[in-house]
Design a protein around this nucleic acid. Structure first.
Length: 293
DNA sequence: ATTAATGTTCAGAA
DNA sequence: TTTCTGAACATTAA
């Protein structure tokens, strides 16, 4: 579940420590599981990065970017269960990749830990980076979306808004958990077609996205029941305590104290919503002859 | 002991 | 063109 707030938390956690450091080594950890997807090969990565300086660390959508003085960039994609750690991994057997730095003050390295191993690590030159993370591949960052950007979503797809929010070409950074939370705060039903959203709804979506994501960042992300997500020091986030709908099926809505949270499946993913706060779309597909009296 | 569910992205099919 | 499906993987709950 690293989505925008979790990845942002990773970046904020590691940036002050690793920025400006000289890379001594960058290589996969010996690991009992199948190797992570790493491009190019570990030997090429080792050769190309040794001795370069890590000049900046930032987030692009749900990826962590480590920019090197050579102009190359590491792009780390945590996918489901990946973590960037400065110390204290949850265990050693799921450590997948390590960066070691010259000189040692408090921290001597940076690690990528990934339980399921679906994450990826790539080293890109400038062209490859632009090709892979450019605006034709990723829409505007969810935190920077303007009203115009929101309008474009409705012009580009008729899918349900919940499904559209997960399309990284339309908005970059929102995942399954925050999509439900954002729609709830905006009082928008998840099944509403993106193309039928009103100007007022689009405005609320913009505000809710901002609010939910910024608050989640302040709380250092969401650590769910499986406890997978941790910050750079292996500490849990706290935003799960503020979830209004996600993973709260059958609970009474804590906002209206009236509706009961419903879990449904859209595009093979769980969606949670409150039918009272987010009305609409409850019509049965066939309405039998109900004249207007 | 199987099976389902989880949640992100991409390739390939409808 | 747009939308949908399945696969990549490890772990836990049912």
């Amino acid at each position: 579940m690293p989505e925008l707030p979790e990845v942002e938390t990773m970046v904020r956690g590691i940036a002050p420590v690793v920025t400006g450091r000289v890379v001594r080594s960058a290589k996969p950890c010996r690991c009992r599981y199948r190797p992570l997807s790493i491009v190019p090969s570990p030997s090429v990565i080792a050769r190309r990065t040794k001795g370069t300086t890590l000049v900046s660390v930032y987030r692009r959508a749900k990826r962590v970017v480590l920019e090197l003085s050579s102009g190359d960039r590491f792009v780390i994609e945590p996918r489901m269960t990946g973590l960037m750690l400065l110390s204290d991994p949850p265990d050693r057997e799921h450590l997948r990749f390590e960066w070691r730095f010259e000189d040692g003050e408090d921290y001597t390295g940076l690690w990528f830990w990934d339980r399921r191993g679906l994450g990826t690590i790539r080293l890109f030159d400038r062209d490859e980076f632009e090709r892979s993370l450019g605006s034709h591949k990723l829409g505007p960052d969810a935190l920077l979306m303007t009203v115009e950007d929101w309008k474009k979503i409705g012009e580009r797809t008729r899918r349900p808004i919940k499904v559209a929010l997960l399309d990284q070409k339309l908005v970059a950074g929102i995942g399954n958990l925050y999509a439900s939370e954002i729609l709830h705060l905006a009082n928008v039903n998840p099944q509403t077609s993106a193309s039928s959203l009103t100007a007022r709804q689009l405005k609320r979506l913009r505000e809710s996205t901002q609010t939910v994501l910024e608050t989640a960042i302040r709380y250092e992300g969401s650590t769910l029941g499986d406890g997978t997500y941790r910050n750079a020091l292996n500490q849990a986030g706290q935003y799960q305590n503020a979830h209004k709908v996600y993973d709260r099926a059958d609970e009474v809505c804590m906002t209206c104290h009236e509706g009961t949270i419903i879990r449904m499946v859209q595009a093979q993913r769980s969606t949670f919503y409150c039918p009272v706060c987010q009305p609409g779309r409850t019509l049965s597909p066939t309405r039998s002859g109900r004249g207007l009296g």
